[in-house]
Design a protein around this nucleic acid. Structure first.
Length: 496
RNA sequence: GCCCCCAUCGUCUAGUGGACUAGGACACAGCCCUUUCAAGGCUGCGACGGGGAUUCGAAUUCCCCUGGGGGCACCA
């Protein structure tokens, strides 16, 4: 691929605000952004809100929030504006109408008076007879008089593109090479709807041209619409931008693409799809960035963890794969863990705080800071911190008496463990990690119990959990008073 | 049904005709470490969908088949 001249690169991401910001969008968006940053070009955000029936109020803010969270800034678009605005298509309606008229005048388009019912019936018949579906062009040959008759009846037309009946339309895809389609397979698509709004096809061409977009990077699923796109450029006498079609992201099961809805695996487990869901679950934006970049693109044959700068500097369309990719939550979890482990303790504690504050009002910064090193290498996502450490912030432990008795131990021994621990811990001159460990180990040995048994019983008494952060550090942070209280309560439970 | 795209371990991928007994990562299994769980270390399992053709030589180029995915709206 030829290296584009730096100043010429202008790419855009153009979502339609019909739903929440999801993974598939995020990946397309990221690749566009990377391409712009890699080539020192401009990244433009344009809102394609031409479908009033599917418009979703919160969609735009959800996307902007998600972009800010991922650190993807835009040079032109909502909130920042720019020389080619407005950047909402709903504010550009007269533009599309002008160009639609222009196509009508030049004979590249025509008015179609077919009703939605007509079209539906036509499709049904085509389906039944096994014919390829598509508009049958019955209004393409209407005479001026026939048109006037329909207008007189109050029929409001749409404007359709006059697709050439013969020949082929082709384009060069930067990732896939030459793609060619026979014009006879293309139907006369609607450019302007009867409500005066443009369809996607018209609006996108007009805006990409007027906004001087140089490269269009978008998902695979758009390939079939590209020849139509090219034809509209031709009809307007414009030069199309360069296209690159990105491999689609498939759900983990491989049964279809990642949609805006929840995906469910074979066991019926639900997975996150929306960006704000990943955020709420405690995936780090830097991990999401890294992971998304690696779906369909690779830096080399071994590097997985890359900084934002490394990715920008090395991003390259020639290394974008053309095969679809299944999304792997396992690998994302692994990568998020890697990023969590690499954080400075203060940084991580700061990110953990909101998750804990949400479940308990008594959470204090200092305690979170002390707890953080205990859980850092155990977290898959930030929200996991709650399950790991909630016992620090509440005295309501769910204790089952039987759970206090470790394997190959009698109830009598468990009681002994608790009583002896109570005594040892009560008498320690200082209640720090080292002193606690030394005192308890000596006692365990004296009693002839395995560390596993002794500490297991104590762990459950202090935390209510069979699996918990390292015991000695945990006890030190809980403090002597709470620990003794919990040990005593556990003993009561066993005795009664 | 019609059109289009795609094809390397279970998954993400490296691979751009000889450096390939095909490399890495996730997942999985085993061992080590170990107070639980992790993390970490080591080892293992594991792929070029099939058939032709081109070539001295093919994972890599071409064709066919098969399989998977996507698209066929007055949605984007």
């Amino acid at each position: 691929m030829q290296e584009p001249v730096m100043s010429e690169v202008r790419v855009r991401f153009a979502p339609s605000p019909t739903g929440y910001f999801h993974l598939g969008s995020a990946r397309s968006l990221l690749f566009n952004w990377l391409f712009a940053r890699r080539h020192g070009g401009a990244f433009i955000l344009r809102i394609e809100d031409t479908d009033r029936t599917r418009y979703h109020e919160e969609a735009v803010s959800d996307m902007l929030d998600g972009m800010r969270w991922l650190g993807l800034d835009w040079d032109e678009g909502p909130e920042v504006d720019g020389p080619y605005g407005p950047y909402y298509q709903s504010q550009r309606l007269s533009l599309y109408q002008d160009y639609a008229q222009r196509l009508l005048d030049s004979g590249h388009a025509y008015k179609c008076y077919c009703s939605l019912e007509d079209l539906e019936q036509m499709r049904r018949e085509q389906q039944q007879r096994g014919l390829p579906s598509g508009y049958d062009r019955r209004c393409r040959t209407l005479t001026a008089r026939q048109q006037a008759e329909r207008e007189a009846q109050g029929m409001v037309p749409v404007i359709r593109l006059k697709v050439p009946l013969m020949g082929t339309t082709s384009f060069h895809d930067l990732i896939r090479g030459q793609i060619e389609v026979q014009n006879e397979k293309l139907d006369d698509l609607v450019l302007l709807k009867s409500d005066g709004f443009p369809t996607y096809h018209l609006a996108v061409v007009v805006d990409d041209h007027l906004m001087r977009i140089s490269h269009v990077l978008r998902a695979d699923e758009w390939i079939p619409t590209t020849p139509h796109r090219i034809l509209i450029y031709d009809a307007l006498g414009w030069t199309p931008p360069l296209f690159a079609h990105l491999p689609i992201i498939l759900s983990p099961t491989g049964q279809g693409k990642m949609s805006k809805r929840k995906t469910v695996d074979a066991d019926g487990r639900e997975y996150n799809v929306l960006i704000h869901e990943f955020r709420a679950a405690g995936y780090l934006p830097e991990a999401m960035f890294n992971f998304l970049a690696l779906i369909g693109w690779a830096y080399d044959d071994k590097t997985e963890i890359l900084t934002r700068q490394q990715i920008i500097q090395n991003f390259d369309l020639t290394h974008v794969s053309s095969a679809p990719a299944k999304f792997s939550y396992d690998k994302l979890d692994w990568m998020n863990g890697v990023y969590i482990r690499s954080l400075e303790v203060d940084d991580l504690a700061g990110r953990l705080l909101p998750f804990l504050s949400r479940v308990s009002p008594d959470v204090d910064v200092e305690t979170v800071r002390r707890i953080t090193p205990l859980v850092q290498e155990r977290l898959t996502a930030l929200a996991d911190v709650v399950a790991w450490t909630d016992f620090f912030f509440t005295d309501k432990l769910d204790l089952e008496p039987e759970s206090l008795i470790e394997k190959k131990m009698t109830a009598e021994q468990a009681i002994q463990v608790l009583e002896q621990s109570y005594q040892v811990l009560g008498e320690l001159p200082t209640f720090d990690e080292q002193a606690i460990e030394a005192g308890l180990r000596a006692k365990a040995e004296e009693m002839g119990l395995k560390a596993r048994q002794f500490f297991g019983t104590l762990r459950i008494a202090a935390t209510g959990k069979r699996v918990a952060p390292p015991l000695f550090g945990t006890l030190a942070i809980l403090g002597r008073e709470k620990v003794l209280q919990r040990v005593a309560r556990a003993r009561e439970l066993l005795v009664s």
